[in-house]
Simulated scan of single mutants.
Amino acid sequence: MKNYFDLKGKVAVVTGASGGLGADAARAYAQEGADVALLARRKEKLESLAEEIGSTGVKALAVQCDVADEESVKNAIDEVIKYFGKIDILLNNAGIAVRGGVHSLSVEDWDKGMDVNVKGIFLVSKYVLPHMMENNYGKIINTSSINSIAGDKSEMFIRHVYNASKAAVRGLTMGMACSYGKYGITVNAVAPALFESEMTSNTLFKSEEFLERYSNVVPLNRPAKKGELNGPIIFLSSEASSYITGQTIFVDGGFSVV
């Protein structure tokens, strides 16, 4: 019986791979047999993860990269191509959450949030797509968020640039899907709700009041568990999703349907 989730022989690029959801996804790719290029700014953490993944029998390459800097992105993708020869899968996962509302955000904070969360996807995709188009094959998965369709009334959790940037990711995903499908490239997004990560562990997970309120709203009555985003990512990266493009899968315990 064919294994539709088998990624042996594929090369996956993961941005924001130095920790949290990106590192988890990189491990999941390796478990399914894919070689993995790990991109992030923190080279030491990347090298440690690359060593861990490499010990499982697949190839792993650590590449320092600032996704908001075009020259850094260009050099990083050049290095990946030189090492692996191709890119089959791109997980645009790098992101930041800048707190603050429109009335209080500085222009610098607004630009920082948009640069990493939206411009970063644009730049990495810009330099990966020509290689996928040449091979008439590619799987691109962009990380959006439940906050692309939901805000928060609590003052301490207002993140307006995060809302705006993650909504932009969904729009960009649809546009890319329409343009690159003819090259055999699918483009989809995952939109996680509350997962414990470096971004949330020191803020949202430290507020018992918030966790209780969140759990009361979500149909599954809890935040996500570690690793629960990996399944949807692998699905969208594999032949199991060969006729799916332009979609956003909300991995949110039902939050989006309440």
Rank of each mutant, 00 (worst) to 15 (best):
residue 63 V to A: 08
residue 96 I to D: 07
residue 119 K to W: 13
residue 133 M to R: 15
residue 55 S to L: 09
residue 155 E to V: 10
residue 236 L to D: 02
residue 228 E to L: 05
residue 19 G to D: 15
residue 242 S to C: 01
residue 162 Y to W: 08
residue 121 I to A: 13
residue 82 K to M: 07
residue 5 F to M: 12
residue 148 S to K: 08
residue 107 V to P: 00
residue 103 H to N: 01
residue 240 A to P: 01
residue 2 K to N: 11
residue 197 S to V: 12
residue 181 G to L: 14
residue 194 L to F: 09
residue 170 R to L: 13
residue 247 Q to I: 08
residue 217 V to S: 07
residue 200 T to E: 08
residue 13 V to E: 11
residue 4 Y to H: 11
residue 109 D to Y: 04
residue 230 N to M: 09
residue 208 E to K: 15
residue 233 I to S: 10
residue 36 V to I: 13
residue 128 V to H: 02
residue 196 E to S: 03
residue 98 V to F: 08
residue 29 Y to C: 10
residue 89 I to C: 11
residue 163 N to C: 13
residue 240 A to I: 05
residue 122 F to G: 05
residue 151 G to H: 08
residue 55 S to P: 06
residue 178 C to R: 14
residue 257 V to A: 15
residue 192 P to L: 13
residue 185 I to Y: 11
residue 236 L to M: 00
residue 231 G to P: 03
residue 230 N to T: 13
residue 39 L to F: 08
residue 242 S to F: 01
residue 132 M to R: 08
residue 106 S to H: 03
residue 107 V to C: 03
residue 153 K to C: 09
residue 122 F to W: 15
residue 201 S to W: 04
residue 32 E to Q: 15
residue 188 N to W: 07
residue 63 V to M: 10
residue 214 Y to S: 02
residue 115 D to T: 15
residue 206 K to Y: 03
residue 183 Y to E: 07
residue 215 S to L: 02
residue 243 Y to K: 02
residue 41 R to C: 00
residue 22 G to R: 05
residue 42 R to F: 12
residue 224 A to I: 06
residue 166 K to N: 11
residue 173 T to Q: 01
residue 170 R to I: 15
residue 49 L to V: 01
residue 239 E to K: 15
residue 212 E to F: 05
residue 140 I to H: 03
residue 102 V to C: 11
residue 254 G to M: 09
residue 130 P to R: 12
residue 115 D to A: 15
residue 64 Q to K: 14
residue 210 F to E: 01
residue 238 S to H: 10
residue 206 K to F: 04
residue 151 G to V: 13
residue 161 V to P: 04
residue 249 I to E: 02
residue 167 A to V: 03
residue 74 K to N: 06
residue 221 N to I: 00
residue 185 I to F: 06
residue 52 E to D: 12
residue 176 M to V: 08
residue 67 V to A: 13
residue 135 N to P: 06
residue 42 R to T: 14
residue 213 R to A: 15
residue 187 V to Q: 04
residue 104 S to H: 08
residue 165 S to T: 04
residue 72 S to H: 05
residue 229 L to S: 08
residue 85 G to A: 09
residue 37 A to L: 03
residue 25 A to C: 13
residue 214 Y to L: 03
residue 201 S to Y: 04
residue 27 R to F: 05
residue 256 S to A: 14
residue 190 V to G: 02
residue 50 A to N: 04
residue 178 C to K: 14
residue 61 L to C: 09
residue 103 H to T: 09
residue 22 G to Q: 09
residue 250 F to H: 13
residue 34 A to R: 00
residue 227 G to K: 14
residue 69 D to C: 10
residue 174 M to I: 12
residue 246 G to D: 00
residue 165 S to I: 10
residue 93 N to P: 02
residue 128 V to L: 05
residue 64 Q to W: 00
residue 122 F to H: 14
residue 28 A to N: 02
residue 225 K to P: 08
residue 188 N to P: 00
residue 118 V to K: 11
residue 195 F to I: 04
residue 160 H to F: 02
residue 152 D to T: 03
residue 226 K to D: 11
residue 160 H to A: 12
residue 142 N to T: 09
